[in-house]
């Protein structure tokens, strides 16, 4: 064994490249295909300026790191553990998915898989249950990205005997020891995550990237709505667009507003009303365009306009909104 390693070393003498060796960054960029995915990110995700900038920066760093490796300028691989904070429905999960793909393209993680877990998947119910459960999840996520949704639930300061702390400890250990194998992304609401990090300083220091997801403006929400509808082969009339813009502006001021998710729910209900309307005047012949178009009246029928309050009959879904606010994304 020792013999063979010796011969290998003699066969490959270390080449020290001169300082002015040219670097073809552009070629590297093309070969990694990362631009493609960054552009896709730009097109498919509306708004989120700070998030996109950060992702671009990270991609650039990894690319430069790869070049440096080729030039034998070794440096410790950067820690890429991240925390995503933001209100419900601001696209944290969507971005995490993209992140996994970007890191995979840049060969930072070996598989492009994203394992999404919450407290339930990590923390056990009795003594000795937590460690195997957390380790199991970590094992499965190895070589990819582990996305911990609502991470602040892991730590419950009011309960001393809570097993969440055990889970955090194991996570910290793997985040440190298996830096090359696993990227951990924590997500949650801003204020709660701040408390979480405050009580777990070890966690804060091990996460290099804290990315804050801003709320969407009503214009951005309208653009998101159009994107969502286009995917489902629906379209809005000009009046409907105006109505939706009004709706989002109104809805934003109300309780349980969950950004893009509220818009999705509103659109689902608009589709319901559209179907109803088509049935109501069944005497008229219905064309393909009718099936595709959502009119202003479908949106204006919402109780948000009529009473300035959420529907309580389940159609507008105050309960749902409440659930949304808790589950986040």
């Amino acid at each position: 064994m020792s013999e063979s390693t010796e011969t290998e070393e003699t066969q490959e003498p270390e080449i020290i490249l001169p300082d002015d060796t040219p670097v073809d960054l552009q070629a590297e960029l093309v070969s990694s295909n990362v631009m493609e995915i960054l552009d896709q990110l730009d097109q498919e995700l509306i708004g989120l300026k700070p998030v996109k900038t950060r992702i671009r920066e990270t991609a650039a760093l990894l690319l430069v790191d790869r070049m440096r490796n080729k030039m034998q300028l070794s440096a410790a691989s950067p820690t890429l553990h991240m925390s995503f904070t933001g209100n419900p429905g601001t696209g944290k999960t969507t971005v995490a998915l993209r992140m996994a793909e970007i890191l995979h393209r840049l060969e930072y993680v070996r598989t492009g898989q994203l394992v999404t877990v919450t407290r339930d998947d990590l923390v056990g119910q009795y003594i000795g249950h937590t460690a195997p459960k957390t380790k199991d999840v970590i094992k499965k996520a190895m070589g990819g990205v582990l996305f911990i949704d609502e991470a602040y639930y892991l730590y419950k300061p009011e309960n001393e005997r809570d097993y969440g702390a055990e889970s955090i400890e194991i996570l910290l250990q793997t985040m440190e020891n298996n830096r090359d194998d696993l990227v951990v992304v924590l997500a949650g609401y801003k204020d709660k995550m701040d408390i979480f990090f405050h009580s777990n300083p070890g966690m804060r220091s091990r996460i290099a990237h804290h990315i804050d997801f801003p709320d969407y403006s009503s214009d951005e929400l309208l653009a998101i709505a159009q994107l969502m509808l286009a995917e489902q082969n629906y379209r809005l009339t000009e009046d409907a667009k105006k109505a939706l813009l009004e709706y989002t502006t109104l809805r934003m001021t109300m309780d349980h507003f969950a950004n893009a998710r509220s818009v999705r729910n509103a659109l689902d209900r608009a589709r319901l009303r559209q179907a109803n309307r088509l049935f109501a005047d069944a005497n008229k012949s219905v064309t393909k365009v009718d099936l595709m178009t959502i009119h202003a009246e479908d949106i204006l029928a919402s109780r948000v306009f009529q009473e300035g309050a959420l529907d309580m009959d389940g159609d507008e879904g105050a309960d749902n909104a409440d659930l949304d606010a808790n589950q986040g994304d």
Partner: peptide
């Protein structure tokens, strides 16, 4: 421990071996 189904990467198995 349990048999390891739906693993994607050797690092996870190696972690268990070291354990």
């Amino acid at each position: 421990g349990m048999p390891m189904f739906d693993m994607k990467d050797p690092a996870g198995v190696l972690m268990e071996i070291n354990e």
